[in-house]
Design a protein around this nucleic acid. Sequence first.
DNA 1: CATGAATGAGAGTTCATTCAT
DNA 2: AATGAATGAACTCTCATTCAT
Lengths: 219, 219, 219, 219
Amino acid sequence: MSQSDSFRELLLLDVSNEVKYSEKQLKILEAAIETFSEKGYAATSTSEIAKRAGVAEGTIFRHYHTKKELLIAIVSPLMTKLVGPHMAKDFAKNIFEVEYKSFKDFIRNLALNRYEFVKKHSLVVRILLQEISLHDELKEPYMKLFQDHIYEKFKNKIIEFQDKGEVVPLPPDTIIRLIITTIVGTLVSMFVLLPEKQWDYELEMNSTIQLLVNGLIVK
Amino acid sequence: MSQSDSFRELLLLDVSNEVKYSEKQLKILEAAIETFSEKGYAATSTSEIAKRAGVAEGTIFRHYHTKKELLIAIVSPLMTKLVGPHMAKDFAKNIFEVEYKSFKDFIRNLALNRYEFVKKHSLVVRILLQEISLHDELKEPYMKLFQDHIYEKFKNKIIEFQDKGEVVPLPPDTIIRLIITTIVGTLVSMFVLLPEKQWDYELEMNSTIQLLVNGLIVK
Amino acid sequence: MSQSDSFRELLLLDVSNEVKYSEKQLKILEAAIETFSEKGYAATSTSEIAKRAGVAEGTIFRHYHTKKELLIAIVSPLMTKLVGPHMAKDFAKNIFEVEYKSFKDFIRNLALNRYEFVKKHSLVVRILLQEISLHDELKEPYMKLFQDHIYEKFKNKIIEFQDKGEVVPLPPDTIIRLIITTIVGTLVSMFVLLPEKQWDYELEMNSTIQLLVNGLIVK
Amino acid sequence: MSQSDSFRELLLLDVSNEVKYSEKQLKILEAAIETFSEKGYAATSTSEIAKRAGVAEGTIFRHYHTKKELLIAIVSPLMTKLVGPHMAKDFAKNIFEVEYKSFKDFIRNLALNRYEFVKKHSLVVRILLQEISLHDELKEPYMKLFQDHIYEKFKNKIIEFQDKGEVVPLPPDTIIRLIITTIVGTLVSMFVLLPEKQWDYELEMNSTIQLLVNGLIVK
DNA sequence: CATGAATGAGAGTTCATTCAT
DNA sequence: AATGAATGAACTCTCATTCAT
């Protein structure tokens, strides 16, 4: 599946078919994703996006009043995928509201779920990573979303495993940070920093899971 | 020690006193570091740097012919610190050409060495991370430097520990990637992504080391 | 009577019911009058007019091929009111083809007639004043209309009063200019420049008439 | 004296030689005055001004951050001429703080002073008249300046003449309005609306003065 | 008739870079 | 060496106008 297809899918899921995107609008979004991800938001000109999308420059601004609005339109669907209010496939529900046989099961599910996600949306993820710390308009909603919908559930899961004596008695915050750091670091390495390298995805994911499990369970 | 002081130190070490930096030049570099790290390279204007540095716009271009040269001047000293040809404090020599009692010792040294480094140069590290994937002029020398001076030594160390039966028999490349991913992920979280958070640095570093050691040694 | 109503009346008189204006067309004209008069012709965008009128942008151009045509459509009815070929209420006939008992009567009629007119159509008058010196398409017909239909009659009236020894023996052109200047200046002050001021219209008009009469009659 | 010379003089008087204008800056101001006065502020493009001034478009924005700032820079010196705090030639002092033998003397001085002024600065006056009601940034300071520095003195003069039984007992505000309306109307007719007409300036000014004097004195 | 998406020329403005002083 | 005025290309964004629906 191409990146373009993946973004179209992202949009469709996002809005539960409530919003219609015209073909031109999709062309603009796709062109913007490609260019932002190659050169960065600030170094990309709207005229280049227009050229790539095969539309007039004015057309971009008919749909997205400013260049920044275009950036937000690209990056926002990621958020909905994480915590879509009425979405069957939403991440928070699928990962944290499930019973696991073991900590290993939990880590494996989490890691593989994120693996699929980043693999599918690597260009948009790349843009998000590049720009999130430069634009408060992006940073704040993501922080809030993490705090409100993910952090608490994540923490409870960790405490649950600690109570069962399965996981080491480090502060849950630290454990969460280690898990995220390790998984995200792996995915970013493979799909964002060195996407052209011939990775053995299965090996890398399994090793990462193994590191986390062996590193965090009580032996 | 302030970030500015740290950069001055970085420069002095870098050049082994071979190049003289005028006070204006340092002002420019400091202003550029602050602004690049806040807003990103592309979104920073040379006029803003000039204003912050308290110099005329033309002065910047007397020292650095282009804006990109200024970026490179900021980021390059990091490289020399990694593998300075005649430098006592060079990272490669200090970390990889040393005998360790145990894998844990090795990881601890590596992690703490990088901790000190990133803590001291967090602004420049931030700039490097933001820009490296957008500019081939930055990416290539870093890749080459890693390949030529660090990778081989790192790999040998890992194989050494594997031969002793201390480390799990995963491919050395994967182990290297896991170590780097985990340590860099931790440091980036603390100093680049969420620098304003009240981190317990000691706790985070020790936990990270513990994760890597428990996760990678043969039990 | 609102300004919008006044424009509708202006149109109806104008065309002697020969042209039909659709409701949309009237909405467009009203919106254009308001916006042109607030922000000036050049600073008003057709999209803003469309929004105010509650019609699509394209609809404006179906009725008025260009933005300038819209301006002319707004301002032209004023002209017909001045010298409508078959119009009972036309200004030229009503004011200059009438016998007056005295110069004072003449000035009073002239001033009050213009007072009613400007009061009723102040927005359109404002637009005309703003734009007339910037667009030759507006300036020329007005100059010609004044020359052809008003100037000669006005001059004859003045000479008539001078011959009777009632009015000072200044050149008729100068007297015409003084009368127009004074009346128009007064009306513009009250309705165009400072419309929000609480004017005592009767006082101002009477004083203006008094100034002109005392200033121009032979004592 | 050309309009350009007149504006240069305006600037020099304005600032009491405290501010230096570069040759390019003057070229820009002159080009802007010509173009604004011909086509109006909104219909004038900065690129056209640059072309006329023989400078690069960027140069305009080095001196005046926005197009509106350029408009204000053109129109502001007029204000200083009216009420320059330390200026020998300031209008308010010269006209209203002087003893007059008669009302006629006062009106003559006032009219001729304004005549010289508008004649010299007709282009800038034209711009001011065109734009003042469209931009609050212009309107407010002028209203305030009139209120604070001119209105009170003007009113006292009128009351003085009324107390002497020389001037008709209309409300002073109305008399002020009639005087301004008549003089400004005359000057605007001659220099702004129909500058190309072959006016007999002396005749027109004398007639205007005569109208005001005969119209307002007690016989 | 009415619509509003699409256009592309041109608007105001910013910018990295040059160069006379 | 340092300055900062000047440049003109490129930028984001707006606009009057067109046209398929």
